[in-house]
Simulated assay, not measured.
Amino acid sequence: MNCTSAAKQNTQPAARDYKIQREWMLVAFGNYSKPDLIKKGAKIDLTANMEDGKIRGGAFMGCNNVFFTSEFKDKGKVKISGIGSTLKACPDMSLEDDFSKSFKNMTKYSVEGHFLTLSDDQGNQMKFVAADWD
């Protein structure tokens, strides 16, 4: 007598197959160096439960807590909306300002290994590494 378990069928959208729902550290963005991004603790958090295909996410770029809604769709499409933040005044908010301006324009995503790359229609990119990897 043998016991085997049936393979579970994955019926979730493609975005979930890539394990998007995790914390991602920002490692490449604009003219910011990787050490500067790490020093600021730059990251996005997509660990919230997905509801109607949307993830209520958060971000931190060294000063304020940023919040947003994201929809990771099939064929590498992403929609970022509802961006807001807490209102602390910090000495250097340039990364946070640049991130917020660019993040809302991201329309594409790709996951390769433990890296998430977001890009806009002009070819600008943000590259992240899974926080539990690096």
Rank of each mutant, 00 (worst) to 15 (best):
F115D: 13
L116A: 06
K108P: 05
G82L: 07
G41M: 02
P35A: 02
P35Y: 01
F115I: 07
K79W: 03
W24M: 04
A42Q: 05
L46P: 03
I55V: 12
P13N: 04
F115Y: 14
F72G: 03
R16W: 12
S119G: 11
D97V: 11
L87R: 15
G113E: 10
G58F: 05
D45F: 02
N105M: 13
G53M: 05
A14G: 09
I38E: 12
K101Y: 11
F29W: 07
I80K: 00
E112Q: 14
S100D: 13
S70C: 07
D120Y: 06
K75W: 11
G30T: 06
Y18C: 07
D121N: 12
G41S: 01
K75L: 11
A48K: 09
G53C: 07
G62K: 03
V111M: 10
L37N: 03
L118E: 01
G84W: 01
M106G: 09
S85F: 06
E51K: 13
K19D: 14
K79F: 08
T47M: 11
P13S: 04
N105H: 14
L87C: 09
L26T: 08
W24L: 06
F103Q: 04
D97W: 10
F60G: 10
Q12E: 14
L26G: 07
I55Q: 03
E112W: 08
C90Q: 08
V111E: 04
Q122E: 14
E23H: 04
C63V: 07
G41Q: 04
K40D: 10
D17L: 12
K77C: 02
H114D: 15
K39N: 12
G53S: 09
K73C: 08
K40G: 01
D120Q: 03
S33R: 06
T86W: 06
R22V: 09
G58L: 07
F67N: 13
E71L: 11
W24Y: 02
C63F: 08
K104T: 14
K79E: 12
F103E: 02
R22Q: 14
A89V: 15
C63I: 03
N10P: 10
D52T: 09
N10A: 11
K101H: 13
T11G: 15
G84R: 02
V111W: 04
S102M: 13
I44S: 04
M25P: 00
S85P: 06
K75Q: 12
T107L: 06
K39G: 05
K77L: 10
